[in-house]
Simulated scan of single mutants.
Amino acid sequence: IKTSKFELCFPQLLNSSCRKLKRSRSEIVLISFLLCFISLTTVSLNLLVIISISHFKQFHTSTNLLILSLAVSDLLVGLLFLFQIMLTDGYWYLGDRMCVFYYALDIIITFISVGNMVLISIDRYVAICDPLHYPTKVTPKRVQVWVSLCWISSLFYDIVLLRENLKHPGKFKSCSGVCVIEGGFIEQVADLVFILIFPITVIVVLYVRVFVVVVSQAQAMHTHIAAVTHKRTGKATAKKSELKAAWTLGVVVVVFLMCLCPYYCITLSEQDTLLNNLSAFFVICLFYFNSCLNPLIYVFFYPWFRKAIKIIATLQVMKSKNYFAVLMK
């Protein structure tokens, strides 16, 4: 059975097959190429972030450990794009278990990304609003503990949210060729609160406070810049570095929120539109594309990251005696 707009996903299953949206061959090739390019770019850029922060010990700061955690989750998003490439034909053909695995990975990555953004907001809040106690309150070891708790909590949250789908894969699908999951009312409310409302509220409140302090400090520095002595120059430079980090990570957070909100509107309203609705497909890809933008923001704002990329790309990283001097130039 065929119509002018739809055809069956599995023609041999006349009574149980879903219908898929017909797309031209050129459209499928174009979408697949773009998704492959974005996936490769996302994985490559975030891999550079991971290598840079992991390899250079001078980058093992509390803030950079949070960036490292975010880069790992962004790298997983790049790999998740491979599933989106398989959906360009408009139907799911990998089976029910892989469908649940896809959604489970998607939920874990979303939870971790949101958690990382909250931790980054807390880090910047303490660094700017309570700078004297920042070195003792936010230590690398404490950050490692909080990041670990974030990843562990994401796994626990995922298991609880998808418990019925994990027990009975494909239980909620209406026909063959569709990939859907479903949760109860309590799960949907919990998802809305813990992934959207609570994190965004915390992020917005903290960053409003941060930027109020940043603006006041910037005005104070500008007013008294002529009176700064040589002895205080180091402190002023350190404060300027903290302010720049706040602005940079503020851009990361704002871009993340701009990509998260449309994505969550789609996933909360109609999850089954993922395969057949092109606008929903675009919004979901927009959220994933945020993971490609984060490393580009670091390149634009962080000179140390640009130098680290140069060292890695030119293989100077293999010369243990020279790379530190090059990095500090």
Rank of each mutant, 00 (worst) to 15 (best):
F305T: 01
C261S: 11
R232Q: 13
R232H: 07
L87Y: 01
V212I: 13
A218L: 15
L14S: 04
F198Q: 09
T237F: 13
M258G: 08
F10E: 08
L48N: 05
L70W: 01
F256K: 07
L79N: 14
A313Y: 07
C9W: 11
D191V: 04
D158K: 09
A313G: 01
L260Y: 12
N290W: 15
L132H: 10
N277G: 02
D130H: 13
E187T: 07
L68A: 00
F81W: 08
V283P: 09
S73Y: 02
L48E: 05
T223F: 03
V317D: 15
V202F: 07
S73P: 09
Q12E: 08
F287P: 11
S113I: 07
I311P: 09
F305E: 12
W304T: 03
C18V: 04
V210H: 12
G234L: 11
H230N: 07
T110R: 08
Q58C: 04
S176M: 15
N276G: 08
I109G: 02
S52V: 04
I225H: 06
I197R: 09
L13K: 10
G170H: 07
Y125Q: 08
G90T: 02
N290C: 09
E270A: 03
D96W: 01
Q271C: 03
H133A: 00
L149P: 07
I51E: 11
D106G: 03
Y263G: 07
L68C: 02
T248H: 07
A246H: 10
T63A: 04
Q84E: 15
A104M: 10
A220M: 14
C99T: 06
L82M: 12
K167I: 11
S241W: 09
I225Y: 09
F10H: 02
L206T: 06
F6A: 01
S216W: 10
V189I: 14
N15M: 07
L296F: 01
I1P: 15
T267F: 02
C150W: 05
L80A: 04
L293K: 12
E7F: 00
A280D: 12
L35R: 14
A308S: 14
V213G: 01
L94S: 03
M318K: 15
K307N: 10
K235T: 04
K329Q: 11
K141G: 00
V118C: 09
